[in-house]
Structure formats: C-alpha cells, structure tokens
Design a protein around this nucleic acid. Structure first.
Lengths: 216, 216
DNA sequence: GGTTTACTTTTTGTATACAATATTTTGTGT
DNA sequence: ACACAAAATATTGTATACAAAAAGTAAACC
C-alpha cells in the first residue's frame, strides 16, 4: 500500500509548522527560534531546519542567513501577484476537473462543500478559511493535474491569500462554490472555468484596491 | 547592500545540485547518496539534507523516506501537466512585462536573446537549453511579478520541460523569441501574451502526442 | 541450481556538540 | 540621563556521532 507511507520527522514538523502559521498561532513577522520550536515539537533542530527549507519554498517562511527564520509577511503587492496567479491556474484546474469528473471525486468535493456550509453556521474564521481552502483544493485534486495541485497547495497560495481578510462573505462564497460544483458535475468545462475565474476576480480586485490605497 | 547577501551552505549546495541535475550530470532516477555527495561538494550531510528538501519542492528531487533521495524523473503525463501550467503562467508574465517594460529591463532581455543566438552557432544542447531558459526567465523577471518568477524558476519548470527533447528547432525558437521581444518593447501586452502562448502551445502539443503514444 | 535465511555492511534519520556570528546586557564616559 | 563601547549571552550554521533501517552478501536448505 502506497497510501500508508511512512513520514519522516521533517515532513511532520513541516506540517505542524504549516498549521501553526495558517491558523495564526504563529503570526507574520514572528521569529522562529530553533531551540524553542524544537523543544515545543519534541524534535531536534535537524528536522526543523529541513522543514524551514521546505516552508521557505512555500512562501510561508522567510530565511535570512545568520539571522534566522521568520514567518513570512506577504506585502499588498505580493498578494495581488498571488491572485494573478490563482486567476490563471485555478480556472485551468476547474476546467480539467469538469472534463474528468467522475463519481469518485465528487464525493470529496461534496464533502468539502457541506463542510463549508457547516463551518458557516459557526463563527470561527479559521475554520471558515480552511473550509474554503479545502473546497478549492478538492477541485484541483479532481483535475488530476498533480503538478497544479502541488503548486497551489505547496505554496499555500489559497490559504495565505484568504488570510489577509480578502475573503468575501461566506454565504456568497458558498453560492459560487455550489455553482462551480454544478458545472463540474455537468462536465461543462468552459462554464466551470469561467465561474472559477469570476469567483476569484472579485477578491483580486479587492487586493488591487488595497494595494492602490497603500501606495497612496 | 542587500544584493551582496551572504549565502548559507544549504543554498550553495542547492545551487550546485540544481546545476548538476539540469546539465544532466546527475541523471533522472539516479540515487543521490549522501556521503558521496557531501564528500564531493566538501560539505557535511546537514546542509545537503536541507538542499534536498528545497529541491524536492522544485520537482527536481524525489525524497523517499528511508530509501533516500533520487533525481526526479518526470513522466510523460507530468510533462503535459507542466506545459498546461506554463501555458497559463508565462503568457501572463509576458503581458505584464509588456505593460511595465522600460529601458532597464530590456538590457537583460536583449542580452539573453543575443546569448541564445550565439549558443545556436554551437551545438552544445545544454548551452542551448540554458539560453532558452534564460530568455524566458528574463521576461518573467521583467514582469515584476516576483511570485510568478519564483514559481517558474523555483520549479525549474522551464529547463525541466525542455530537457525531455521537446524543444523546437533552435532557429524557430529564436525567431519567436524575437517577435515576443518586439511586442514587449512596443508595450503590446495582448500581442506578447498571444505570442508567448503560441510559442508554448506547439511544445505542449508534442508533449501530448508523446503521452498518447506512450499510453497506446 | 535456485531460494530462503542469517549476517555484514551501507546508508539513512536524528540528536548532539562546537565554532562563528548576532543580540542583549552591562558598564563607562560625556 | 543619554550615547557609545565592551563583555556576556543566546542563536545560528555546520560537523560529527550514533541508532535504526535498508541493501548487500554469504551460507544453508530444499
């Protein structure tokens, strides 16, 4: 069985840190002191260092030589750039998902969607963000493009961009997600692509507006 | 001065390994034995491990727990997926480059172009591939979208995809590059975007054909 | 002869130790 | 009291050491 693959500590640590960053337990700009973290996670500094290297590539951590590791703070400009990229890649994923969608994958997608609906009944912003992230990633997974999935997940692009308060109202998001799901089920690749693009475009515009404001 | 930043060993090692892989010195599938490599590069295994972690994120290395590190072999399917992604991201970069192109950036672009012309007079495939890579990356850099530049370079997407013999004839490539450059200079963002898309589309088609053939 | 099993060697994964560099604190002079 | 310098402390980067797992090898068995 391939699914039950053993994870090395570096990967586990990497996951823990990613969670801590995405849930806001570790805040942007914060220094990641090796000794403190290794003690907290119960591992030595060696796997921690490997994890830092991974997370640096994911734009979650910034590695400054001889100064240490810091939780990366995305600038308004970078946020816009991130959205430009999402705007190109996620519609591609949605279209591919619509082409190949079968019974199997839909289960995960539907699960993600109902989880989002449930999260919206509560008021935990972290849970809401996570639900949104899971829905988007479920589509990318469905697309069958492993590299696409990896770029988007690996860079934590989705979570990170939402973290900055750019996420639209939960109910509107849910509506749009529902529409995207419908297009995918109907194998309407162009529809899925366009709906996804529209879904992201608004957030991008907010990001751009914020950048303008900051520049002024 | 920020430009003269000190690089830690992990980053240097990472660079060396990347070069070795992209030049073909280390071939896909080959196992990367830690002791041998650390001795060869004159460093201990610690920075080597960090470098492996980085390169894994770049799709250049595959890390199998308890088995070691291997030079990643891209499947025909992954190659197509890579092209789908390039096809979305590089036209974006070309369009943005055309919008912001100024005198400063053009120098680098022109340098990359003449370097390519020069490389084509020789018959070193590695040099030709590198020149192609440099031209594409010069545009991404010109675009000002640092994240885009980072995704494309970091994943070594361009080199890797060309490595598989999908690169079109050198002269045709040079012609198309020249046209793209012209569009960028003219601030013709739509033109640049379309030319870049067309430039990549052909290679993608070859990749798709190869996948079909392999499947049959 | 080929296959399994036990043993040896290699290689990985992790922890720890140590030197070099930053940071903080303390002290001194103005 | 403030600014600056010097020592003390903390933290990083790297090497090395050691245990656990995998790979390789040789011997015994069918």
């Amino acid at each position: 069985m391939d699914a039950l693959k053993i994870e090395d500590l570096a990967e586990q640590v990497s996951k823990s840190l990613r969670d801590m960053i995405l849930t806001g337990e570790l805040v942007p700009g914060q220094k990641l002191v090796q000794t403190a973290l290794s003690e907290r996670l119960g591992v030595s500094r060696t796997p921690l260092l490997a994890a830092f290297s991974k997370l640096e590539k994911e734009l979650l951590v910034e590695l400054v030589p001889r100064r240490g590791a810091f939780v990366k703070q995305l600038s308004a400009r970078e946020l816009v750039q991130l959205y430009e990229i999402r705007l190109r890649l996620e519609p591609l994923g949605a279209a591919e998902a619509a082409r190949v969608a079968g019974r199997k994958g839909m289960v995960d997608l539907d699960a993600a969607l109902s989880a989002q609906a449930k999260a919206l009944t509560g008021d935990d912003p972290v849970a809401i963000r996570l639900a949104d992230y899971n829905f988007h990633m479920a589509i990318m997974k469905l697309s069958g493009n492993a590299i696409l999935e990896r770029i988007l997940s690996s860079f934590s692009i989705i979570s990170k961009s939402n973290q900055s308060g750019l996420m639209k109202s939960g109910n509107k998001s849910l509506e749009e997600h529902t529409a995207i799901r419908a297009a995918i089920i109907a194998h309407d690749d162009q529809g899925a692509e366009q709906l996804m693009a529209a879904h992201l475009q608004e957030s991008r515009n907010v990001a751009v507006a914020r950048l303008r404001q900051e520049e002024a």
